[in-house]
Amino acid sequence: MDGKAVKAILFDLDNTLIETSLAGVVGIQKSSELLKTTLGLDDNTISSICAKFKQKLLHEDFDPSDGGSIDDVRVRHWEESIKETVGDCSVPSLGAQCYYTWKNSRLEALRLSPEVCDLLKGLRGAYKLLLLTNGHSQTQREKVETVGCEEFFNAVVIGGDHAEQKPHLSIFTLCFNMLRVEARDCVMVGDSLDTDIQGGFNAGVRATVWINRAKAAVSDGSVKPDYTLTTVLDLPDILAQLQ
């Protein structure tokens, strides 16, 4: 470290500032209850449908230029998951019901905790803050609006609005230009080694901070973060070391 002061902090959103994974569990639980009530399915069959949906979500390839919305795509994920597991469904709208139950329940479960709000308020007085999140424009904007976090940041950048997302250098360069800072002035904070930490490394930021809630080991071949925390709330301790 060269001892130069940090001027800006780039934050990831999902599982860094908000617990998206836990909210996803809530969404799946609510959709499971709907499936059980509507079709009277057993728990194993319901689990199979939900597992298929999560796999389709994980490997999703959405291109808005093809027409339709991300909502349309995810309704089809549920429709296909149900059909692949139990065959043709007697309730034609069930896929849509499952999707909107999952989506709305997940959004309702998302929140910016009072502690994280206090952290961002405190940092905002000393640093420029930017939210940099990967994902589809609509889904990420819905999260940002739901948790009301935009007020804490100088700028919000959603990967789906741009040609390249994290870890590509271009989106980091965009962020630096928006904040009028150099890469060496910035710290990147996020939960993903592959996107947040690798992206920060590619961009040449001052330091990378990995939020590792699960205390997972860094696998061989992965980029090594400069710092590792189990909660973003401990970030001020790292920043004090960098000044």
Rank of each mutant, 00 (worst) to 15 (best):
199 G>S: 10
230 T>D: 14
128 K>S: 13
54 K>E: 06
115 E>S: 11
51 A>D: 14
128 K>R: 15
145 E>N: 13
174 L>H: 13
222 S>A: 14
204 G>W: 09
208 T>K: 01
46 I>F: 11
194 D>H: 10
205 V>N: 01
39 L>D: 12
64 P>E: 08
70 I>G: 00
144 V>K: 03
148 G>Q: 02
230 T>S: 13
137 S>N: 14
135 G>E: 08
182 E>K: 14
182 E>W: 00
5 A>T: 00
66 D>I: 07
192 S>L: 11
136 H>A: 09
198 Q>D: 11
136 H>C: 06
171 I>V: 13
30 K>V: 00
76 R>V: 15
226 D>M: 00
6 V>L: 11
9 I>Y: 05
153 F>Y: 13
154 N>Y: 07
161 D>A: 10
133 T>P: 06
42 D>S: 14
57 L>D: 11
92 P>I: 03
98 C>A: 14
52 K>Y: 07
62 F>I: 03
54 K>P: 05
88 D>F: 03
6 V>Q: 01
4 K>I: 11
126 A>Y: 03
152 F>V: 01
239 L>P: 10
130 L>A: 10
13 L>G: 07
62 F>H: 14
62 F>L: 12
156 V>G: 01
96 A>D: 13
64 P>L: 06
154 N>W: 08
72 D>A: 09
14 D>L: 04
157 V>Q: 05
